[in-house]
């Protein structure tokens, strides 16, 4: 069975339509004189059906940007738009429902619940939403990620790479509009990391998904279609169709 791009909403007929974007997005940590401007009126858009990497030095605000766009954190001002939905106008419950229905997540570590086996972890967003499991789609995802023989295993019985594959499978299971990945290869050796990146790329190229990934690894970033550079809470530049050298070069210019 072949995967249909229409499995994902918002893609790919309008490849250039933004799936998610920030408009004047500002985030202050703390208050008064000690307030830190983590994001300073950021305007950026991430196209549907594309794989975008966000890079920048520590403290550049790249994680904060993703947290605000993913409805995990609230912005101080500005707007975070998922399709036509303004996340900054939603309350906690609405944000929670939006996350489980329209978004997927892959984190650096501690992606899986230790008490659940791999299959239960993959199905968790659907279970939390009380939604029916589409068994064909589940089989498809499991097949693409090559975790079919690991479904009954607990996270503690899986390698780091296997755990991240399960996490990606979970991010895919509800056919999200956008998958947010925060340093998904940060805790992996280069071979496992490469596999996870390949899977993320596959989910964009073949499954028609949209991926926004935070990373500090130029090689990982070069897997993306586009790299957005962040520095001091501002968008500092971008690279289309990046190579590792181009990314390193871009980073060096940020530093200098």
């Amino acid at each position: 069975m072949s995967l249909q791009t229409s499995d994902f909403p918002g893609a790919p007929s309008a490849v250039l339509a933004p799936a998610v974007r920030a408009v004047g997005l500002t985030k202050l940590h703390g208050s008064g004189d000690t307030a830190v401007r983590a994001l300073d009126a950021v305007d950026v858009a991430f196209a549907a059906g594309r794989f975008t990497a966000i890079m920048g030095p520590s403290g550049s605000g790249k994680s904060t940007l993703v947290h605000c766009l993913a409805g995990l954190d609230t912005a101080t001002s500005g707007r975070a738009l998922l399709g036509d939905t303004d996340l900054t106008a939603l309350n906690d419950t609405e944000l929670t429902l939006l996350r489980r229905e329209r978004l997927g997540f892959v984190f650096q570590a501690f992606n899986l619940l230790p008490t659940l086996d791999a299959e239960a972890n993959v199905l968790l967003p659907l279970k939390l939403a009380g939604r029916r499991v589409d068994r064909d789609w589940f089989a498809e995802v499991v097949d693409v990620l090559g975790i079919g023989d690991r479904l009954r295993h607990r996270p503690s019985e899986l390698s780091g790479g296997q755990q991240q594959r399960v996490a990606v499978a979970r991010a895919l299971i509800n056919r999200p509009e956008v998958i947010f990945a925060d340093e998904p290869t940060g805790n992996l050796d280069s071979r496992s990391g490469g596999e996870v990146l390949a899977i993320l790329r596959t989910s964009v190229r073949e499954l028609g998904g949209t991926v926004v990934m935070v990373t500090h690894d130029p090689v990982a970033a070069s897997s993306a279609d586009r790299v957005v550079m962040l520095a001091d809470g501002h968008v500092a530049g971008e690279i289309a169709d990046p190579t590792p050298d181009a990314v390193i070069d871009g980073l060096r210019r940020l530093g200098g």
Partner: peptide, 16 residues
């Protein structure tokens, strides 16, 4: 804490 944070990220509401 981290586990509950993960569940919240994946869509566990406050009530849940």
């Amino acid at each position: 804490t981290r586990e509950i944070g993960l569940l919240r990220a994946l869509g566990l509401t406050r009530r849940q």
